[in-house]
Amino acid sequence: MNEFAIERYLNRIIEEREQGEKEKYVSPYFPEYVREVVPDMGLDERVSQLTTEQIERVIKRVIGKQTARLKSIIETCMHCGLCSDACQWYISNDRDPTYAPVAKIRMTLGEMIKRNFKVDPEFIKFCARVVFTECNICHRCSMYCPFGLDITAIIRLVRRICFILGVVPQRQLDQAQTHITFLNQVWLSQNDYLDTLFWREEEGIYELKNLRIPIDKEGAEILWFPLGAEPKTGVDHIDRFAKIMAVAGVDWTMTSKDTWDSSNMSMFINDYFTMERIVRGLYENAKRLRVKRIVLTE
């Protein structure tokens, strides 16, 4: 397809999809911010229990000492627009300025500092929507900023404020809490995890002779950590990795202890304590098994 055909094709799809009047969400602080309403328990219900004093205390605790530094970052920005052109949200939504990376930090942290941390719960809901569902922390905007301002670091600070207040989209919060409880993201207990590995080894023998999934083999060359969802819903990844290892003749192993999951949902909502527990667990597994290398899943 050439440029024009692509443009026509995508315009037709969006016309089909956008038919009919839909309810719109307009931010009480920024009338330019108009979005579709997406019901999300984690955002809608938790804000009703918050108070202004609570919010002020949390924001002070997270950014209190760095306020001047953060303010200087926001004020250094020249509004050159290089970050906006780097953001796929901005380009894809008809260049709507409320999607620009610098708008995201000015509308959230900039506004908090401007109002001297006195903001109402509805504003926190708005912030959570901006930082959790409209930014991927992909670092593309920071890469193009001529002043080298780290926009993503500020987005992460706002995420931390929202996390401490408990205003996080329900599915993200659920996965982060699973990490707190089980150190994997899918509520999978240790028995089920080990059973899955044994089951895949049994099945794999019919496809490749001598296919093994070694567990807790000390001194192996490679220690492989799967993603939490793999033993639960995507066992074919375990099969395929075992096949590649069997064909390549690599001495590999998997761990039987906790923290076998290489994903880190707590990192995305900036729960520092659990983040550290996960990485420490992964490193300690590798140290205990005296492996030479860790390979993570895709």
Partner: peptide, 14 residues
């Protein structure tokens, strides 16, 4: 970005 990084992959309702 693929638009699912940064924890957005979990948000199936969005």
């Amino acid at each position: 970005c693929c638009n699912s990084g940064g924890g957005l992959a979990a948000l199936s309702n969005w």
